[in-house]
Design a protein around this nucleic acid. Structure first.
Lengths: 188, 188
DNA sequence: TGAGTTCGGAACCAATCAGTTCCTAATGGG
DNA sequence: CCCATTAGGAACTGATTGGTTCCGAACTCA
């Protein structure tokens, strides 16, 4: 019944995610957000409550789209060395110059938004689990506990790379670093 | 000549650094910034140009105060194990709940402010040098190149910890992790 | 003491902020 | 075909944004 939407919700959410990801929460004004979504003010408030609510929805979307595909990539990897599977997470080619949305949300939004804080932690935990699984499958490290510790270290390294990457730091050879970190290669 | 300042510039800068550190750049409104500095509008624009300029000055202050004292702490450390010296960087007790100002600046401000990007990279490099020096002094690792690599890894871990800490993640035993990372202890 | 200079602070500025109201257009069910 | 319901969008809200203007007060130096 009644008049149907003229815009595609998923497409609008993608636009919102893109601009929040690129410019951050505060720096994204409502007009620019609407432009990115291809939606007018009236429709926006009818369909998505308000700015804070849609930000959270874009986080959820990042989880189901970007994080999930990363996990699938890790799961599908058949390389003998764990470092080979994990390396794509350290080459920012996929995320271009926007960095990692989770990292941005953690630093800018999470401190004064408990829901965002909880969601980002949940996503980080999913990533860690994916990393842990890669290590487990290849029996990297000397025990389950050791693998868990290595996964935690790799996860923190990932966020460190993402944070520093936003200031334009060039990433050198993480392939070699990961290999040595995971003891797949002797230090030179 | 002429009327002297009624406020202390350093004290005002400290107030500015504190609020930028805690709330970020965009989220700090001018009124709240002035309140934190204990300065009125007129005096503010006469003494500090504008919001962007004073933000950069607080970054410089963070460098000369916080970063420098961290480096001194690393330099003065006489513990036999490098991990013991580096551990304080991973316990957020010093920075409380504000995280690391450099990390915040990298993620929120650097992408659209080249001066801030360059400054944060410079500070990160200073930190890395401090870490490298700690490792060098104790001959951690198998070579100078290997020590440099480990310093780079520890630096990235530091920023990862800071970023994730802002979402409230609890930090577990980095002491043990650092020990094993720097090969000062065998994995369990 | 007077001239010159800077400070402090209130008032003011246009622009922008997120969010609301309200009316018209479009649609599907009965 | 008509009515209930919802979308679209312009216009408007009050609050807040960062920044400027201006003037009297306070001070130093000659």
């Amino acid at each position: 019944m009644a008049r149907p939407r003229e815009f595609d919700t998923d497409h609008a959410l993608d636009g919102a995610m893109e601009i929040f990801w690129r410019k951050g929460y505060k720096a994204t004004s409502l007009p620019s957000l609407l432009r990115a979504m291809g939606v007018t003010r009236g429709s926006f408030y009818k369909a998505f409550a308000d700015k804070e609510a849609i930000y959270f929805q874009t986080l959820e979307r990042y989880d189901t789209e970007v994080v999930s595909s990363t996990l699938q990539m890790l799961e599908a990897c058949e390389a003998p060395q764990a470092s080979t599977c994990l390396l794509p997470m350290f080459t920012q080619s996929g995320t271009a110059d926007r960095g990692c949305f989770i990292c941005n949300a953690m630093v800018e939004v999470a401190p004064n938004n408990p829901k965002v804080a909880a969601k980002t932690q949940e996503m980080a935990d999913r990533l860690k689990e994916g990393i842990r699984s890669v290590l487990e499958k290849r029996k990297v490290g000397s025990s389950t506990a050791h693998r868990d510790e290595l996964a935690e270290v790799v996860l923190h390294l990932y966020f460190g790379v993402q944070a520093m990457g936003k200031s334009g730091r060039v990433h050198e050879d993480w392939s070699a670093r990961l290999k040595r970190l995971l003891m797949e290669e002797q230090p030179s």
